[in-house]
Design a protein around this nucleic acid. Structure first.
Lengths: 145, 145
DNA sequence: TATTGTTATACTCTATAACTATA
DNA sequence: TATAGTTATAGAGTATAACAATA
């Protein structure tokens, strides 16, 4: 017996299948992000750091957000600072702390990256408001952060 | 006027806000994956390669799936082979091609990684079947691959 | 004493270019 | 000629350990 219109509703994926789907989605997101960042001559990690700097923050906070050792952040920020994309500033409240902030050039790069990533996610732009609400809610449930 | 129960439905996120949510979800997925892989002494990339090897495949195919240059795959497979997690085999149909396949040890590592990632995604295990179907469908729309 | 950031070190990942074996 | 895989090289990301400055 072959199915006639309307087609059968799709079977819900098992948790394992959904995990695989999440893995492919995460890979696709970063492939897209890395390609856009490369358009500005930036690596994936450099693009991530710039995108995280919506506000000035200590090196230490950056390391926590990137889930890497603090010693790595020194080199990453060195390379971004050499290209005038970020600046280090002393924290007046605690002289051990260095605050990292975007320069004007860095802010422009972030705007280009965000626009580029969004432009490549045409499937997201086509999503109706209820679907956007559902996707946001489901992602919050799976990744409470 | 303060809201009484039931609370107002949440406002749908804008495409830009949803993009940020996707970025955090992708980061959380890889943070989880990398931590589980590290439990087996594997890097993120090594864990990804093992997970991709559901079937034997040429080095070239692996490079395409990883979206990296083929020369990188040589070193990654070298290190996995030195730990007896994968093997190279000549392709009888084309002697230029080397097929990479999981050893028994490699298959065990993949099972541990998959179980570990799934176990850490407790928000996913708690999802009811209709929510799993909706999330899978929405991810397919945003990341058609 | 504890914390922040840096340096030194070693290893992994990465792209580019040049090479070989095979098609 | 074209393709699959490797090697050599240089640069970037990574964790660990030790250090100076500050709290």
């Amino acid at each position: 017996m072959t199915s006639l219109a309307p087609p059968n509703p799709p079977a819900p994926p098992s948790p394992g299948e959904l995990m695989d789907r999440l893995a492919r989605a995460a890979a696709a997101y970063y492939r897209n992000f890395a390609a856009v960042a490369a358009g500005d001559g930036l690596t994936l990690m450099q693009g991530k750091v710039l995108s995280l700097l919506r506000r000035p923050m200590p090196m230490r906070t950056l390391a926590e957000l990137l889930a890497c050792d603090a010693s790595n952040v020194t080199g990453i920020i060195d390379r971004l600072e050499a290209r005038d994309l970020v600046r280090r500033e002393a924290d007046p409240a605690d002289r051990r702390v260095k605050l990292v902030l975007l320069t004007e050039t860095g802010q422009e790069a972030v705007r280009r990256i965000r626009a580029g990533v969004l432009a490549d996610l045409d499937g997201l732009a086509a999503l109706a408001a209820p679907d956007r609400e559902a996707l946001g809610r489901l992602l919050d449930q799976v990744f409470p952060d």
